[in-house]
């Protein structure tokens, strides 16, 4: 593989994997704190699935000559992460968590439906596996959006507030990186505009049917290498044990 293509591929895989890892960690923060026991279980399951997806994708990075999954997750600082700011924002209330999960699940479904056809076989194989599990995530968050959007005036108010806050961040999922063209040309990754079109078909009618107003705010203008201070705090928490004894075996 051409070095330039290989580097672009590694960067893009890290972006997708980092989104999974960071959102997985945020969801795991609900363990023991969810509003009802069944949701505690559901969020823990979803978090575990997201971590599993991150491991699959980091594994491809490792096979391309990058670091292994543990090193990538536990020994990089915030400025080396390529996740969108959407997933690093604090978990907020239940409405915030469920709106974010719905917007992200729909993105993952739209993305991996395209990646399943990637000309780079390891990505196509991983995406086929990831899609099997994503269907359950989307079904879950889809139901919560409807339940809370059409619930009480208070639940609707909280859902709308969450949606208004999250909307500018969602746009970052669809901003192409500088080296995207080479990946699209190789048919390794889809053009994000096509993923966005599919995502909108899933998301917008459902938000509207759930009594929510789709905002028209512009996306934040930040590359995936720029983060909020929330990521530093998250990493300090997530990486503490691994970094306290890097030589430990588990």
């Amino acid at each position: 593989m051409e070095p330039q293509l290989q580097q672009a591929l590694i960067n893009r895989l890290l972006a997708v994997a980092d989104d999974e890892l960071i959102l997985g960690h945020r969801n795991a923060e609900w363990t023991g704190h969810a509003p009802i026991l069944e949701e505690d279980i559901a969020l823990a399951n979803i978090a575990q699935d997201e971590l599993g997806h991150a491991v699959l994708l980091y594994g491809i990075v490792a096979d391309l000559g990058g670091d292994d999954a543990d090193t990538l997750a536990m020994f990089r600082d915030a400025d080396a992460f390529r996740n969108v700011q959407l997933v690093e924002l604090p978990k907020g209330d239940w409405a915030f968590t469920m709106v974010r999960q719905f917007l992200y699940d729909a993105y993952e479904l739209a993305l991996h439906q395209r990646l399943r056809e990637s000309a780079f076989r390891p990505i196509a194989d991983a995406s086929a596996k990831i899609l099997q599990e994503e269907i359950y995530h989307l079904r879950h968050s889809h139901a919560w959006v409807e339940r809370l959007g059409l619930g009480t005036s208070e639940s609707n108010r909280r859902m709308q507030a969450a949606l208004d806050t999250l909307w500018p961040y969602v746009g970052q999922l669809f901003v192409e990186s500088a080296d995207a063209e080479i990946l699209v040309k190789a048919d390794y990754f889809p053009a994000l505009a096509s993923v966005q079109a599919h995502w909108e078909q899933i998301v917008i009618p459902h938000l509207e049917a759930s009594g929510l107003v789709v905002p028209d705010t512009a996306p934040i203008d930040a590359p995936r290498t720029v983060h909020t201070a929330h990521l530093d705090a998250l990493l300090a928490d997530m990486q503490l044990v691994a970094r306290s004894d890097p030589e430990a075996t588990w």
Binding site: E38, I41, A42, A44, N45, I46, Q48, D49, G52, Y136, R139, H140
Partner: peptide, 13 residues
């Protein structure tokens, strides 16, 4: 169906 997610990743309640 009470929950698509259960005590392990592969179970529903």
């Amino acid at each position: 169906l009470k929950n698509s997610f259960g005590s392990t990743l592969c179970r529903a309640i």
